[in-house]
Structures are given as structure tokens and as C-alpha cells.
Amino acid sequence: MRVHKVTFAVLAVAAGLSLTACQNGDADAGQSAPSSTSTVLPGSNASSTGGSSGTQSPDQSVAKPSAATGSGGSSSGGTGTGTGTGTSANAKVGKCTTDELEFTAKDNTIDGDPDGTVVVELTNGGGRDCTISGYAGVDLKTNAGTVSAKRTGQATTSTVLKNGKSIDFPINYPLNKSGGSGVRITGLVVTPPDETKSVTLTWPGAASLPVTDGPGASVKVGPVGSAGQGG
């Protein structure tokens, strides 16, 4: 009877050890599973030891919005469709109109020069950028009629005139050195390039033109962006 009790006890201990070993094996298997499914969220700087998932994938960087290029994709912060809008918007800047420009005329004659110079400044006050190029139309009102300025023939360039910025052009005219009253100037009429609407300004230069106007002594206008002594 005693032999049977000892044998039963040995069998019970062996069974217990076998059960414990099985339980430990299952626990180890359960602990290793999370490392293979680790996920790094977009924008996260966290690192992971679970294989290649520790680095951000290309999809994670694409998902970041980019207002500068409009390539935000499906991200809620994106503003474009992948083609961008900044470059095309700049390429479609409209021309400067008369109603958007502020006009200022000032005397810019240098002592000793044979001709007088008036500079007309155009300031963009339209609340947007605009393009301007070419020659403005210039007419001097006088007591003897209208005198239209002739172009100097200088090359022209197209300029994007930022909102609030200015550009100018020169008007050269013969000085009245005859000692007489000459032709009295009563006003300055300016029409911006590619526009038909004009503005009338107070003439800031010499009061009169000579009565006779020989070759090379006519009123001349330079292109926008060439302020100073004209050609």
C-alpha cells in the first residue's frame, strides 16, 4: 500500500511539471506577437524594433500637406490636385490698368542739360500684382494746342509691378531759352501702356516750350522702367 502512494505522488509531480512547461511556452509565444505588427503613425518620430516598420514609409511623407506646391494629396491640409497653383497663377498676372495706378509727375531736370526732364511715377494701388511694359502715351496741353511726345525708340521690357510698388518713365522736352514767353504748358496727359483711359496731371517742369521746334528738339518719352535722362 505504501508503494502505491509513492508512485502516485511521483506521477502527480511529473504531471504538474509538464503542465507548467506548457503554460510557459504559450506565454512566450504570446509575448512575441506585438513586435511584428508595430505601426508608426504619420508624422511620428517614434522608433520601433519590430523590423522595417520602425521607419516611415513614403506614404507617410506624401500625406503631409504642402501649401507651397499644392501637392498635399488627400490630406485635409492639402490645397491642390498635385499640379500646384503658384507658378500658373504668377504666369497669368494681368496687365496694369489706369484705375489701378497712382500717378505722380516731378521735375528731374539736371542743371547744365540742354533739355528739361520730367519723371512720371506709376504706383500700383490696385491690391494685386500686375504687368506693365512699353511706352505710355504723353500729351502736353499748351495754349497753342496739344503737343504729343515721340518715343525714344529704346527697347522695352515687361515688369511685374508688385502691389504698392512703383515704376517710372522720363519725358524730355526742349527748354525755352529764347527769352520770350514761348508756348505755355497748361497740363500733362498720361495714358498707361495698352490702355485707352488717360489722367491729367499738373505739369511740374518749365513753364513753356520754345515757339520754334527744330530737329531733335521735340518732346520725347522713354519706356516705363527707364527713368532719368531719356535718349
Rank of each mutant, 00 (worst) to 15 (best):
T83M: 13
A207H: 10
A68Y: 11
T55C: 01
S198R: 12
T81L: 05
S71I: 03
T39S: 14
G180E: 08
S158M: 01
G72W: 00
G94M: 12
T97C: 05
G214I: 11
G77R: 09
P114D: 14
A136I: 03
G153C: 10
E121G: 01
G72Y: 03
G51R: 14
G134C: 01
P210C: 09
E100L: 08
R2V: 12
P223N: 10
G225P: 08
N143K: 02
T109A: 09
S52D: 14
V119M: 05
A136Y: 02
G205Y: 03
Q60A: 03
K150R: 14
L209G: 00
G30S: 12
G25H: 09
V93W: 04
Q60K: 03
H4P: 02
Q31T: 14
L41I: 10
I171L: 04
G182I: 09
R2D: 11
V13C: 08
A89E: 09
K106H: 11
S47I: 14
S198Y: 14
D129R: 05
A14E: 10
T142W: 00
T37E: 10
S35P: 00
V10D: 03
A155L: 09
W203M: 00
K165C: 04
V219W: 00
V211N: 11
K220Y: 01
R184G: 02
T37D: 07
T152E: 15
G112K: 02
V10Y: 05
N172D: 09
